[in-house]
């Protein structure tokens, strides 16, 4: 389920970094509030735990085996906030040191496995095992939570990959990133998880949670915290993410004179007067001229010199 770099367009990666930024902020603040200084080592060790249990292959009848993702166990045991942070740390370590999942795709991977998976597992487990639940209801609740969680994460991954040929292709229609459309990517991700990996995750999670409860080690960092902000946040995301991904047309606020006229019914006089007054040193990166390639190279050279100058000035100011 770890999406490597090169599978998602940079625009999609940016969207998911944007989505995860408030989730990380919210989760770190909530964890700090509920756990205090214990939060840092707890999240790090929760992440290390997930990393290690992913090393074990869980045996299933028929001589085959599969490994756990671990997000559901973390969501149920540590609570959603600490689980978001711990899973993000695991994914960060895997991306940086082991090449398992991309650095640019880190935001998308975190959305699937550090947000969707533990939060949905937590919510389902809370609903099924609410009140004075017995051992069987807890076992069943954990299994159902893990099955739903891993399948939701797989579905999200399938949708993200399947959208790529729609949103990132050449003028001839050739896909620039993951080449499979939704009708192939979604079943390819969903079916193995519905039939095999979901079952492995469900069984393994239920057994681990049962042992955890038997040993009396239930932390659930978010127990005292209200889930309302998270649910509202997730609800808004669910509504906005597909729109953002498939949105075509001019970015908000970058309208031209004609588009603004169509939108407002009139063109503001300032826009009428000043649009096009300053065309830049190399307008449209030099696309208008016949020496397009050379101008592009010069633009890039100019940009890199400017960036180095900014870094130099910043480092000088920082020293003072």
């Amino acid at each position: 389920m770890h999406i490597p770099d090169g599978y998602l367009s940079p625009a999609t990666c940016a969207v998911f970094y944007g989505v995860m930024a408030p989730a990380w902020y919210l989760a770190s603040k909530k964890t700090e509030k509920t756990l205090g200084v214990k939060g840092l080592p707890l999240m790090a060790l929760g992440a290390a735990f997930t990393f290690v249990i992913q090393m074990f292959n869980f045996p299933v009848p028929g001589g085959t085996s599969g490994h756990m993702a671990g997000g559901a166990v973390l969501g149920i045991v540590l609570g959603p906030w600490a689980a978001i942070m711990a899973m993000s740390l695991t994914l960060g370590l895997q991306a940086l040191f082991f090449g398992d999942g991309g650095i640019l795709a880190f935001g998308a991977n975190c959305f699937n496995m550090a947000l969707v998976m533990p939060v949905s597992a937590y919510v389902v487990f809370k609903v099924v095992a609410s009140g004075e639940a017995g051992a069987f209801r807890r076992f069943f609740g954990a299994a159902l939570a893990a099955y739903i969680a891993v399948n939701l994460a797989a579905l999200a991954t399938g949708i993200e990959l399947g959208l790529q040929p729609l949103i990132a292709h050449t003028a001839e229609g050739r896909a620039l990133y993951a080449p499979y459309p939704l009708n192939i990517a979604v079943p390819a991700m969903a079916l193995p998880h519905l039939l095999f990996f979901g079952v492995v995750e469900a069984l393994a999670t239920a057994m681990v949670v049962s042992y955890v409860l038997k040993m009396g080690i239930f932390v659930e960092a978010g127990r005292k915290a209200s889930l309302r902000p998270l649910l509202v946040f997730v609800g808004v995301l669910i509504a906005l993410v597909p729109i953002g991904l498939i949105a075509a047309g001019t970015p908000w606020g970058e309208w031209g004179k004609e588009e603004l006229g169509q939108l407002l019914g009139y063109v503001p006089s300032g826009v009428e007067r000043f649009e096009g007054a300053w065309k830049g040193v190399l307008p449209d990166y030099g696309q208008g001229s016949g020496r397009k390639a050379l101008l592009y190279v010069l633009s890039a050279l100019g940009g890199s010199v400017l960036l180095v100058a900014v870094v130099y000035a910043w480092s000088r100011l920082w020293k003072k």
């Binding site: 069984l203 393994a204 057994m207 681990v208 955890v212």
Partner: peptide, 24 residues
Amino acid sequence: AQRWFASRAAFILKKSLNTAEEVS
């Protein structure tokens, strides 16, 4: 094997939480 896996995973989690407490 499944039971062993689950018990060891729970044990590792317990060890993680104990270590987190000691480290904090």
